[in-house]
Design a protein around this nucleic acid. Structure first.
Length: 211
DNA sequence: CCAGACGTTGTT
DNA sequence: GTCTGG
DNA sequence: CCAGACGTTGTT
DNA sequence: GTCTGG
């Protein structure tokens, strides 16, 4: 699945040129966690915009971000019918820039082992996402999002059975709804070998707190 | 996702 | 809000 | 009809 | 073990 990821400075170069004109708004980080603000590319009538969003989708019936379970992922297999995701799946898809993500392999009683996965081609990528807006008590509109997941490809199944869906640049317009229908066909794993997996590499350890 | 907390009382 | 279970 | 759920992950 | 915060 995808519960921690990274956005490197190199992604800024890539996204700034290929996607949008306001790279300064892209959130950079080596350990991006659920509930924090991330940057997502959304389609608008005037083109694509990079927009900050809480990672943790808030359905429109939630009274607030903690009014139900934390929804950081949405299953590709059921996203079109689940009440929480259905409308967003049809009308509010986004692209979430990334340089790679962390996955923890379960070792049963022996605990777990972290892996760092990044595109084998060495560049940036974009996760498939869906987003939702909701109005806070102060009347301000906030955005939140979830990353779409699918079954893992065979080469990665030994690490984990779910993976984030990647949208290739040639399909960005289709996913964002700028090129008609057909986004559903994009929700599948990348071919074997697309991801490069490095074992025993977890998120950077945060610096010890000073007393 | 992981890491870290997980409690009560009364007093200021 | 919308769907499911009873 | 109303009441209650509405989600993903992994683990057993 | 289970919940919360990030």
């Amino acid at each position: 699945m995808c519960g921690r990821f990274a956005v490197s400075p190199a992604v800024v170069e890539n996204i700034a040129v290929v996607e949008v004109g306001n790279p300064g708004a892209l959130q950079i980080g080596a350990d991006i966690r659920p509930t924090t603000d991330i940057s997502a590319v959304v389609a608008t009538g005037a083109g694509r915009m990079l927009h900050p969003m809480r990672w943790g989708f808030v359905p429109d019936w939630y009274a607030g971000p903690n009014d139900g379970p934390l929804l950081i992922n949405a299953r590709a297999e059921t996203i079109a019918t689940k009440p929480a995701f259905r409308a967003a799946c049809r009308q509010r898809r986004c692209l979430i820039p990334t340089s790679g993500f962390y996955e923890w392999q379960s070792l049963g009683r022996q605990g777990k082992r972290p892996y760092w996965l990044q595109p084998a081609h060495g560049g940036a990528a974009t996760f498939a996402g869906i987003w939702q807006d909701w109005r806070g008590a102060d009347g301000a509109v906030h955005h939140s999002c979830a990353i779409v997941t699918c079954a893992a490809s065979e080469d990665l199944a030994h690490i984990h059975h779910r993976l984030p869906v990647i949208i290739e640049p040639s399909n960005h317009a289709l996913w964002l709804g700028e090129a008609g229908r057909g986004a559903a066909t994009l929700m599948h794993a990348q071919p074997q070998g697309w991801w490069q997996a490095e074992p025993d590499r977890g998120p950077p350890v945060s610096s010890p707190r000073l007393l």
